[in-house]
């Protein structure tokens, strides 16, 4: 399967998200689009929701927490942010 081609907007969101994720990066691993929030960063269920609040404020959008159950990687999260910015 070919890797998904992401838009430049999403790349830029990924980079913003990686900055925000540094706070949760206890092991100081390299962060990128394919970094897994739960298995690589060990972010627990409450931390994910706290992160979502920060993202909502940074991008001035709302991300209902019902939408985050399918989020596994930073790229998943970036796509969700992108969708909500478009008024999704």
């Amino acid at each position: 399967m070919e890797p998904e081609v992401e838009s430049p907007e999403i790349d830029s969101i990924v980079s913003d998200l990686c900055d925000m994720l540094q706070r949760y990066n206890k092991e100081q691993i390299a962060l990128g689009a394919e970094t897994s929030l739960s298995s690589e960063l060990n972010i627990d269920s409450v931390e994910v929701m706290d992160l979502i609040m920060e993202i909502e404020d940074k991008f001035d959008i709302d991300i209902p927490i019902n939408l985050i159950s399918d989020v596994e990687t930073v790229a998943d999260l970036a796509r969700l942010v992108h969708e909500r910015m478009k008024g999704g």
Binding site: I52, M53, D62, P64
Partner: peptide
């Protein structure tokens, strides 16, 4: 099944 928004 409602839309859930968390506040600080």
């Amino acid at each position: 099944g409602a839309t859930l928004v968390r506040f600080r």
